[in-house]
Design a protein around this nucleic acid. Sequence first.
DNA 1: GTCTATACATCGATAGAC
DNA 2: GTCTATCGATGTATAGAC
Lengths: 212, 212
Amino acid sequence: MNEASLKIQAPALKQKPTKAEVTRGRILDAAALVFRQKGYALTRLSDIAKRAKTQTGSIYYHFESREAIVAEVLRIANERTQNHVSDAIASLPADASVHDRIVAAIHGHLKIVLSGDQYTSAHIRIFDQIPDKLRQHFLKVLDESGQIWRLLLEEFKAEGHVRDDIDLSVVRLLLIGMMNWSVEWYRAGRLTPDQIADQVALMFFEGITRKS
Amino acid sequence: MNEASLKIQAPALKQKPTKAEVTRGRILDAAALVFRQKGYALTRLSDIAKRAKTQTGSIYYHFESREAIVAEVLRIANERTQNHVSDAIASLPADASVHDRIVAAIHGHLKIVLSGDQYTSAHIRIFDQIPDKLRQHFLKVLDESGQIWRLLLEEFKAEGHVRDDIDLSVVRLLLIGMMNWSVEWYRAGRLTPDQIADQVALMFFEGITRKS
DNA sequence: GTCTATACATCGATAGAC
DNA sequence: GTCTATCGATGTATAGAC
């Protein structure tokens, strides 16, 4: 997954997507949805075709294989997550503190993960079910996306805000882990993704213990 | 999965397990291992048979179906996790503080999860891949096991140690989530499960921020 | 109890009509 | 571009010998 393949194909210049592009998009949307619901291994091409309102055989005009579909779904999911986090940080004033930028990143990450975005939640759900070769590739992609967290936390530490007994690379993984696992239990209703994000940030920075 | 099927067959009274019981145990161990490695949907009965040094057909003498195998693996996993957490708490002095009991529970949970126990890590890995009916059942089991955490945290709050802006049911799920997700990234080596547990407890209670 | 052989269903992928 | 029909591979479960 190099830089070139990540760029969006200037949609503003293309008022009229071809019929094929529309169908391809419907197939991807359907795939993300079904992957999320049933997991990768249990998803049949016929499930995807049905929801995309096409036929199993037709899918092969748009994709080389079942694996090519899941690869594209994961690529889009990573792109969306990274954009969401970057945008959340970028929307802050230029002089925002590291603390506030990390909080913004937490909100950005949790909002896309819990918003019901099919691609992102499918990614988290199916990641450890995909073929080994694919997982190897996307592990690298994930590690690169993790770089933003690494930099933020190191900056926070460099400013002297981090306890000496905290291992930054462990708590980084714990932080991302508790956010990702939230798709397993979160149901829209009582609390919003922003409120969950507040709880995550509170616990992460201050802990649950009352200061007295 | 009714109550009767959950009872243990008084192993202490039975010095000599039958041949069938030994084989059944080998099949379960093999299943837990392969489930953990390949996930539920990608695990073939032939994979299990091979590792258990038997034949695919022979499995059906010991289990009704593929589903019955995974159900038993999950039952054992839950049993082990719950026992580990209870034991960790029980090993404390009777007058241990709630804080210390929660820390012990965290150590107990993470130790069984990261120890390489095949049943426990298989449980976490395959839970969202199993048939709906099974998942419904084990969701109830999990909720009951979660009760211990609920009680501990409420006791901690009742003693006045919890910040007012903390939502206990959310942070409980976040805590369990970050511990369970750790199987995705933890590799034996640099840090021990106990050291990870220390980091979890630190973050959970105090946060990463230096007090000054 | 454990084996071999096989029935039966399912699914990814391809071929070819339209 | 999308359809229908079908091949070939794979995997659960069963039958029956030993």
